[in-house]
């Protein structure tokens, strides 16, 4: 079983973060919330492994 990657894995962290922020530019809170929800669903489908997704949800929950 593959484990959730929780060590640095992005090609270029700064670029990704800037892209994420740019996607929200000019959006209302409501529009941003909707964008986030769509993004999560797209990424979840790409991962396609419930076990991994459960680990991701758990990691997100614990870090807050």
């Amino acid at each position: 079983m593959t484990d959730l990657i929780l060590t640095p894995n992005l090609d270029n962290a700064d670029d990704f973060y800037a892209t994420l922020l740019a996607a929200h530019e000019g959006l209302t809170k409501k529009e941003s919330d909707a964008l986030h929800a769509r993004l999560i669903l797209i990424l979840a489908n790409h991962i396609g492994d419930n076990k991994l997704l459960e680990q991701a949800i758990e990691a997100a929950r614990k870090a807050g």
């Binding site: 909707a34 929800a37 769509r38 999560i40 669903l41 489908n45």
Partner: peptide, 20 residues
Amino acid sequence: RILRDAVLDLSAEHEFARPL
């Protein structure tokens, strides 16, 4: 509601969202 609406909006464009 936000997640439900996201599923429905995506379902118009992408097949993956339809089983949800």
